[in-house]
Amino acid sequence: MYNKKVMDHFQNPRNAGEMLKPSGVGEVGNMKCGDIMKIFIKVEDGRIEDINFLTFGCGAAIASSSMLTELVKGKTLEEALKITNTDVAENLGGLPDAKLHCSNLAADALHKAIEDYQSNNPSA
């Protein structure tokens, strides 16, 4: 059902866990199946220095969260905001059609985390 890359990210997720003092947090829930994804970011000098995720969801949701954190780490906020849902799925080498909505959660949660950071730091 899932390709090797997806299974690798599922089995060995990158950056899973909670962040103690995040600069921004974004949480999104999936209306379709009830899954929840939470992204924590640490921003320094306009760059996402660290990122973590917590996900309650299917294999594709976990792999997408993991892939997103890899794509985002070290990027500027501007660059990070350009990351789309399709980027996550493409970097995973594709997902089954029924699972595309799971990868959407990841980018949405990231965008929310960035918004959260920006509202906490209006000057930034």
Partner: peptide
């Protein structure tokens, strides 16, 4: 915990099971 991810993890360790989770059904 979500059922599909549990099934995948068990399968990787050689245990075959099934789940009634929305994520395992095509219809969500």
């Amino acid at each position: 915990v979500e059922g599909e991810s549990l099934l995948l993890d068990l399968d990787l360790k050689g245990v075959a099971a099934s789940s009634g989770s929305a994520c395992t059904s095509g219809s969500l």
